[in-house]
Amino acid sequence: MEQNNLKETLLRISGVNPRKCMKCGKCSGTCPSYDEMEYHPHEFVSMVENGETEKLMASPSLYRCLTCFACVERCPRGVQPAKLIEAVRLAVIRQQGMNHLKPDQLPDMLDEDMPQQALVSAMRKFAK
């Protein structure tokens, strides 16, 4: 997808307006997954705004967001970074053959106590 179109699509499906961001870093200050990520919530916001989506799409950080919505809840400007991360993740897994998680990988990941909820959620987050 062409860069500008992609940015527009990401902003549309996420409903995020990155220009509301005042770069305070509270999202990244509160993110429980910060240390697991290469790019952090506030960087998702500024990098999408700056058209650097390719870097984000190639980053494993996409699959480290827990969608816990702490950044959304605590942002002083109502920016909702988690929604933007989700949109970038979708931009990747909606491409042909780009499933992050494939069904044949699953049996090894399971144990008998694992709730279905985890399985369904992970599949829907990471594969289509």
Binding site: C24, K26, C27, G29, T30, H40, H42
Partner: peptide, 24 residues
């Protein structure tokens, strides 16, 4: 910005971002 303050024992664990050093 500070994102969370966690009282733990006698301490207050302050989780915050350092945007210039790029760390939490």
């Amino acid at each position: 910005m500070v994102g969370k303050v966690i009282p733990q024992g006698k301490k207050l664990m302050v989780r915050a971002s350092d945007l210039i050093d790029r760390k939490q």
